[in-house]
């Protein structure tokens, strides 16, 4: 087999080639990242509201959460939470007289990455909420809007354009952090590439192919976020 044809053969979608495995891995990466992103955003929203709530103990707890998660290397967090999370869950189940369960790798990956994302999301959303002009919130109060209505109609629409650049950065970082899940053995794009590479001994080909897939994901995401920001900033003065 000459080298040029063999590279194409190895990357073909159907089984003798490993292209299909890589594509499946890429979808797993996207799925994990998206799940973790949504979970992190939910955590972040509650975290930001908690930090701004003025309830002291809650603020201390949330500060501890965001400080520790942002100071510890992602790899260590992912590995510890992956093991500690499953171990802790089984201990709780044992207390409640249930047998140990095997935690689904996908669920664990999403939970762990989402927990890490949540800390960064908290800070992004807190900054975005603080950047809303106070007058707008005061005006809403003056109209007699209840907190829930105020949040839905005033705060949320005003914070989205402020938070979008941060959201875009976090989406990029969750895509790249999801590769670390490979270390605990869940087969997403990075691990798929490694499996394919070590089976064929063509390390260069498969890691370059994986890198290309990651690049496609990040570049397309970049364009989507730019379009989204343009949409949400319509009618606003352009920033620098």
């Amino acid at each position: 087999m000459s080298p040029s044809t063999s590279v194409l053969d190895m990357l073909s979608i159907t089984p003798p080639g490993w292209g299909g495995v890589l594509i499946t891995g890429a979808f797993a990466t996207l799925f994990i990242s998206f799940g973790a992103y949504l979970f992190g955003m939910t955590l972040g929203l509650f975290g930001a509201l908690g930090k701004l709530s003025g309830i002291r103990p809650l603020q201390y707890a949330l500060n501890l959460y965001t400080t520790i998660v942002r100071a510890v290397p992602e790899l260590i967090l992912i590995v510890s939470l992956y093991y500690a999370g499953t171990d802790g869950l089984n201990r709780i189940l044992a207390l409640a007289d249930f047998g140990p369960i095997e935690v689904n790798g996908l669920v664990a990956a999403i939970a762990v990455l989402g927990f890490v994302q949540g800390a960064y999301m908290t800070e992004v959303l807190r900054g975005a909420i603080l950047a809303i002009p106070v007058g707008q919130v005061e005006a809403a109060k003056a109209f007699g809007m209840r907190p829930g209505l105020r949040f839905r109609r005033i705060v949320l629409p005003a914070l989205i354009p402020n938070a979008l650049p941060g959201f875009a950065n976090l989406w990029m970082s969750v895509i790249k952090d999801s590769a670390l899940i490979a270390v605990v053995g869940y087969q997403e794009l990075a691990l798929a590439a490694r499996v394919a590479a070590s089976n064929t001994k063509q390390y260069m080909v498969f890691f370059l192919a994986a890198a290309a897939l990651y690049l496609v994901i990040t570049i397309v995401s970049n364009m989507l976020f730019s379009a989204l920001e343009g949409y949400f900033r319509r009618g606003q003065r352009p920033v620098a």
């Binding site: 990075a190 001994k201 890691f207 994986a210």
Partner: peptide, 23 residues
Amino acid sequence: CTFFRGTPLLIQLWLIYYGLGSY
């Protein structure tokens, strides 16, 4: 810059260690 910022460090590390290393 686009390549190194758009792909995970893990992939870059493996590409260099296993890929480049094998040549």
